[in-house]
Design a protein around this nucleic acid. Structure first.
Lengths: 230, 230
DNA sequence: GACAAGCAGATTGTCGACAATCTAACAAGA
DNA sequence: TCTTGTTAGATTGTCGACAATCTGCTTGTC
């Protein structure tokens, strides 16, 4: 018996690729909140028929980053300050739970992965690649969810992540200035390696507090934006 | 200006109706876990083409009660004891959060609605309508989520509800005996009307504890069930 | 000019047919 | 007997066309 352990091969359906493309466009801010997605136009651009495109859109609607009105169209979700606040406060609760569950399961592999993701954030920061910086920061944050050994929790987090990534991307896009270069994750990582679970939980709350505060002040500025046309 | 407040008219797309039909079939246990959904057969039975059916299926996949393997088929999710345990433990955390958020927002309308839903459970119990009993009990439980004024939390709960309803339905279906006739929600309701939030939170934990314990012992019995054929 | 009716264009929803892929049964060879 | 190659059937994925619905403009009327 050979011992090679192969990873599952990629989904080869057009639908899956369309989902990935659309999601990326939304999460990086290429598609603005409220914007309408014209099926014919997009399907022609992607050289695909409308059937798989529509199926892909249904998935993203359920994922919570698109919204659909029958016979009117499918739109990128609107972002209100309340949405961000809601996501943020739920995130705090979930973080606490995830840390609690992950805590006894931490091992060397966990610490290694933690360092690896932390390094990825630092590199993206050095490269001034803001999109990648957001992505890697969320991946670093997501490790406690992957490790918590709770599939429903992980699913919930992934759904939340989509929105968070979108929110942060919009925020970054809005303020033209460069991203803070210093690394704010050092303490978080070291606490996750330590022995005081409560301290880690407390810091997680306060840490994401900071990021969100700015996000919120930004979001409050763009309330009642007019709906974008396709 | 007239003052009538109309409820939104029904979605008139076939897709929406198909989603409702399929969801109901799954959540009531008409479709067993692991069972394959044959697109052609179902579309013929419903007198609908495969396009809206497939779109409906995509939605339910994202909702977490179906699972899809490219070129192989779409299946009702398998239920493992761990899945139930995961959903259960997350539910406890969310309950606590929902109660905390709902607490200061309780008013007369809340109490009225609480009573209304409680009454619905009691009536379903009297009628020995187990399916409806599960449905109404979950609706009673869901009020704190609807009242918490947090859209992301509500969404998360609704997703969780789908699975819980499915789990309980399976459980009920398995044990042929009648459902416990006594009402276990009296204390829960009265605590939500009271002044001691901590007590309400504590009881929510212990209350759903009871329901789940039986569910878990049942689920542990059906591990590694063979996949059902269409 | 204000307003309602009706029409044209654009867009979404649905259909039936074809292409790509998988499964299972069978045959051929070691 | 076990493995490998082939093939037929069934099922999923995708396509192009048609039907249903919406939107905005035009027209006609007061």
């Amino acid at each position: 018996m050979g011992k090679a352990d192969f990873s599952p091969i990629a989904d080869t359906t057009r639908r899956a690729e369309i989902v990935a493309l659309l999601r990326r466009a939304i999460l990086t801010g290429q598609l603005e909140p409220g914007q309408k997605l014209n099926e014919l136009r997009i399907s022609e651009q992607m050289r695909v028929s409308r059937a798989p495109l529509r199926e892909a859109m249904r998935e993203l609607v359920q994922e919570g980053i698109l919204t659909s009105i029958p016979y009117a169209g499918t739109f990128v979700i609107d972002v209100t300050a309340k949405d961000i606040d809601d996501a943020y406060s739920l995130n705090k609760v979930l973080d606490e739970f995830a840390i609690e569950r992950t805590w006894p399961l931490r091992d060397q592999r966990f610490f290694d992965e933690l360092d690896r993701r932390h390094e990825a954030v630092k590199q993206a920061t050095r490269n001034r690649d803001t999109t990648r910086q957001i992505e890697t920061a969320l991946q670093l944050h997501g490790l406690i969810y992957e490790w918590a050994d709770n599939s429903v929790l992980l699913e919930t987090w992934q759904r939340l992540t989509s929105r968070l990534q979108m929110y942060f991307a919009l925020h970054q896009q809005a303020r033209k200035e460069a991203v803070p270069a210093e690394d704010v994750h050092d303490i978080y990582v070291s606490l996750l390696k330590g022995t005081d679970m409560r301290a880690a939980q407390r810091h997680a709350r306060e840490h994401i507090d900071l990021d969100f505060e700015e996000l919120l002040s930004y979001a409050r500025g763009l309330e009642q934006r007019p709906p974008k046309r396709a």
